[in-house]
C-alpha cells in the first residue's frame, strides 16, 4: 500500500498537525512514513500545506507531485492543488469553507461541512479538522482510527490528554459520514 496525501488550508486550520497525526499513526503501525511541510512566510496567515506519505515499503521519494488524495480546507487550496491529483484519485473538501465545486470530473469527491457538524454534534468547531481526518481514514484505510488515537497520545502533552475523547468523537463522526457516503 502506498498512499500519498496533500493537505492544504489556511495557516491555523490545523493542516500541519493533521498531516503529522497521519504520519505518527503510520509509524504506530510500523509503516514507512514521511511528512514535508511548506515553510516560510506563507505559513504566517497565508496558505499552508504538507505532504504525507504512508507506505508498506521504504518511501523512495517523499516529494509528492501527484497525490492519491487531496484534503483541502479552504478555497485557494482547492484551486491550487486539484489539477495535481492522480486521475481517479480522491478529494476531500471542507464545504464549510469552500462553496465552489471541483473542476475535475474523474475524482471521488466527498464534501464535508466540518464546522457545522462539529458545532451541531460536539458544540466545538475546533475539532472540525478531525472530522475530515476521520472520513479520510475510513475511505482510504491508510491507518486505523486506533492508531490515530495512539498518535494523539504521543503528540499531545500529558495535560492536554483530556481532549482525546473529544477528538475521538470528532474522528468517529467523520468515519460515520464516510461510511454513509459509500
Amino acid at each position: 500500500m502506498l498512499q500519498e496525501i496533500i493537505l492544504a488550508g489556511f495557516g491555523g486550520q490545523g493542516v500541519m498537525s493533521m498531516g503529522q497525526l497521519l504520519a505518527y499513526a503510520g509509524l504506530e503501525e510500523e509503516k514507512h512514513v514521511s511528512w514535508i511541510p511548506s515553510y516560510g512566510p506563507e505559513m504566517r496567515g497565508g496558505t499552508a500545506n504538507c505532504s504525507v506519505t504512508i507506505s508498506d515499503e521504504e518511501v523512495s521519494s517523499p516529494i509528492i507531485t501527484e497525490p492519491d488524495t487531496l484534503i483541502v480546507l479552504n478555497r485557494p487550496s482547492l484551486e491550487k492543488f486539484e489539477q495535481d491529483v492522480k486521475p481517479g484519485g480522491r478529494l476531500l473538501i471542507n464545504s464549510s469553507m469552500i462553496d465552489i465545486p471541483s473542476q475535475r470530473q474523474d475524482l471521488k469527491v466527498l464534501k464535508i461541512p466540518a464546522a457545522e457538524l462539529a458545532q451541531e454534534k460536539l458544540g466545538n468547531t475546533r475539532v472540525s479538522n478531525m472530522i475530515i481526518l476521520g472520513a479520510f481514514i475510513e475511505l482510504t484505510q491508510a491507518v486505523t482510527l486506533e492508531s490515530v488515537i495512539g498518535a494523539l497520545k504521543k503528540v499531545l502533552p500529558e495535560y492536554r490528554h483530556n481532549l482525546i475523547p473529544l477528538n475521538r468523537q470528532a474522528l468517529e463522526i467523520g468515519v460515520m459520514l464516510a461510511k454513509e457516503s459509500i
Binding site: 514507512h32 512514513v33 514521511s34 511528512w35 515553510y39 516529494i63
Partner: peptide, 10 residues
C-alpha cells in the same frame, strides 16, 4: 537542503 531539514521521517 530545505526538504531534508524540514521533512519528518522515522
Amino acid at each position: 537542503d530545505g526538504i531534508l531539514g524540514q521533512m519528518m521521517e522515522a
